[in-house]
Each structure stands twice: as structure tokens, then as C-alpha cells.
Amino acid sequence: MELTELIRSAAKKLETPFLVIDTNYVKENYSKLRNSIKNVEIFYAVKANSHISILETLRDLGSSFDVASKGEIIKLMDLGISTKKISFGNTIKKEVDIKFAWDNGVEYFAIDSEMEVEKIARNAPGAKVYGRLSMSSNDSDWPLSGKFGTDADHLIEILKYAKRKGLKPYGVSFHVGSQSYNKYKWKEAILNASEVFEKLHKEKIDLKMLNLGGGIPVKHTKPVPEVEEIGEIINESINEYLGWVKGLRVLSEPGRSMVGNAGIIASRVLLRSRKGTQNWVFLDTGVFHGLMETIENFRYEIMVEGKENAETINMTLAGPTCDSVDTIYDEVELPINIEYNDIVYIMNTGAYTSEYATNFNGIEPIKVYTITELEKLIQDEYVLVEEKI
């Protein structure tokens, strides 16, 4: 997302921290994905950012949605989104949530264990289930292997068990890892998925759906493959390994790639100090108020207002709370002359920031504004920054 004069002006006049969202980027990302993967059906992963403006934008574009809970289903239903366009992609579901989803028309449920099959069979008899394959995700910034999915042989047995329990084995899903830098991971995953399709076909169970999950990266501090490049690999791999499947449905569950570049966080420096030989800078936002992913060293691009070309030195960047976990980066290059009240922009932070924010220490969660809201606030000369009142 471009750092515009509107955002700069807002950061100077409004109380920070805040996240600004521009849904024009969401529209562009949706269009790129639709045009890059042949016949793809997009199921936006609501967990990435459930702001109403994003959900309404995607609804109006015709998107479907991937959910993780009853709460997300209700939020979509309240926006007039049909439950026929919702997939319950969490493999660890409460039975009451399964029943609520089924009773309200959700048809698709993810599984990766026998017990989950049993829970769905009890509460959503006849539902369509898709099994999640585990994937090595060493080429990603946010690995998802271990907790989710299972190996191909086990997944085959799980889907056969699902059929015996009265459910409809419907497809295979995977996730190559969030913010994946290796476009060939999708080729590897599709090849693995094809093994499940082929072996079940021999046992007269014909799967109909391939769910590509998420993982398409957003540009931060390292080069990333473009969605068009990833789409080309996906299209070739589906044709090579699953071209024999009649009427195959291809789903994608973008989260970060749909909204990551649609947001910028504006923050301010609360304190600069020295501890031993290390310089520390503390912001008014941190791990507990939007930047949780940095605890795994997820690297965002950081800009300081008016000091973009200044000499830099290595510093420690931290948040405002009374918890040592609230350390954003142990080492990051910041302007040597960064000081109290400087405005700091954390770029391309539209995904997994406001959703993770808490009120820990009694500090309010990060505010969220759309571009339209920001324009109105500036015109109305809303709340001035506390230090300047």
C-alpha cells in the first residue's frame, strides 16, 4: 500500500496507533488471483482481517469465505452472505459450532483426524468433508506444519472412515505455509494431493475438490514470487497430476495475500533509551496490540516520517506494555536520529494485525480506519495527538 499524503497528514493529526485500510487493494488482489488460477473459486480466510469493509467488498465481488468459528459464520450471515458460500476450514471445531453451521446451511467441513469425523457425523450428517494434507513449510515465514493436516496414507484412511460414518468425502486441502517464498511448493503439494485422489478412486471414492489453501506472499523486506507466477505453476500442476479428474473444483483460501498490502499502521515513538550498549526504541503499539507475528521474527518494512534517507544503526524495537515478550525486533535498522514522538509507519500490515490486537495492560486495541473514514476525520479535525493539544 502506498504511503499517501492523506495517511501522513492523518498520522500527524490523529491519535496513534491506528491501521488504515484501502479496499481498492483488496479488489485488485481479488482480480489478480481470479485471473491467475484457472476456474478458481476464492474462499477468503476471514481470520486474516474481518473488518466489515473488507468482508463487504469481497461479498460484492462474489467471493466465498473460509471460516474458523461460529462467530465468523454469524458475522458473515449478518452481512447477508449465503452460508452456501461458506466453508468451515478449521480442523479443530466445537460440536456446537458444527451443529450451528450445518443447521444454517454450511455444507463443507475440513478434517484431519478420526475424532473430527465422528464429531461432524454426529452433528452434520451427510456433510461434505475435505481432508487436509500436512506440508513441509520451511520456505515460509509462518510455518503451519505440525498442528494441521496429516500424511497422505493417513488422510486416505480418514476419508474412507468418513464415508463409513455417512459423510461425503469431497476433496483434499493443504497449506504450503503462510508467506511462502517458493512457488514450487504448490507443485509439490498438488502432486501429494493427487496420490490421495488416485488411491481413493481405485476404491470407488471419487473426490471432486482441490483446496489450494493460502500461502501466497505479500511484499515486505524480501523478494517474493508474484501471484501470476504461482498461478502458472498451479495451473500446470493441476493439468499434469489431476487433469484426469472430471469436473474438478479448484478452491483457494487467500488471507494474507488478499489484505496484507491493503493496510498501513501509523505509530509513534514513546521512548528512546540505552541499555548497556544497545539502543532501544519503544512504540505506542507492539506485540499485544497488532504486531503479534513479529514474535516469530516476521519482518515488516518500517519507515520513519521525514527520516527515510537518514543514516541508520542497529536498535531494539519494542512495544509499550509491561511484558518483555512485547519486543518487536531484537535487531532492526532504524534512523540514528530517531526520537520521541516521531511517526513510524509499519508497511503492508493489513493482515493479522488488528485481528490479533488485545487490550492487555488496559491499552486499547489498535484503531482501524478505512480511507474514507480517514478523509472525514481529517476534514472534521478529529482528536489531535495528545502531546500537541
Rank of each mutant, 00 (worst) to 15 (best):
Q379A: 06
N361S: 09
Y369C: 00
F100W: 02
S252V: 11
E203S: 13
R299F: 02
N235H: 07
G131H: 13
A193L: 11
V224H: 05
I86W: 03
E355K: 05
Y130E: 11
A266S: 10
V117I: 14
I265F: 05
T327P: 00
K219C: 00
D139V: 06
L270K: 11
A11P: 00
M347N: 07
I98T: 02
S140Y: 05
G177F: 03
S31N: 15
E293M: 06
E236C: 02
L210K: 13
K94S: 05
E387G: 01
R268E: 03
K128S: 08
V117W: 07
K38A: 12
K185C: 06
K219Y: 10
A48R: 12
L334H: 01
H289S: 04
K147S: 14
I371M: 15
R132W: 07
E5K: 07
V383I: 10
S36H: 04
E386C: 00
H51C: 03
V250C: 09
S36W: 01
P217E: 01
G89H: 08
T57H: 06
T277H: 11
P320R: 01
I302A: 06
Y369Q: 07
R274N: 13
G255C: 06
E116N: 06
G171Q: 13
S267F: 02
A48T: 12
K246H: 15
E253N: 09
Y352P: 05
I120T: 05
T370N: 02
P169Q: 06
S273Y: 03
T358R: 13
G276A: 10
I336M: 14
E226V: 00
N39G: 11
R268Y: 02
G80F: 04
V383P: 15
W142K: 11
T4S: 13
V176G: 00
N104C: 04
N261E: 15
L133E: 00
E226N: 10
N348I: 12
M77K: 11
T349K: 10
W244R: 14
E373R: 00
K99R: 15
T370R: 03
A127D: 00
M1P: 13
L270T: 09
Y170W: 12
M135E: 03
D284E: 03
Y184S: 06
N359C: 12
T358H: 01
E28G: 09
L144C: 08
T57A: 02
D151G: 04
V20C: 03
T321I: 02
G214D: 10
K99P: 09
K219V: 09
S173I: 05
Y352S: 02
P169G: 08
L317Q: 04
K199Q: 12
I265C: 06
E236K: 14
I230T: 02
A48C: 06
K13C: 05
M209R: 15
L55D: 13
T277D: 14
R8T: 07
V46P: 07
G126M: 14
K32W: 03
V40D: 11
Y161F: 15
D66I: 02
E5N: 12
N35H: 15
K163C: 01
A45K: 13
L248G: 14
G149P: 09
T83A: 04
L159T: 07
V218M: 05
T312D: 05
P217M: 00
I42A: 03
K187R: 15
L58E: 12
S69W: 06
R256P: 02
L155K: 14
E2T: 12
T221R: 11
P335F: 10
A357K: 09
D60R: 09
D151K: 14
S9E: 10
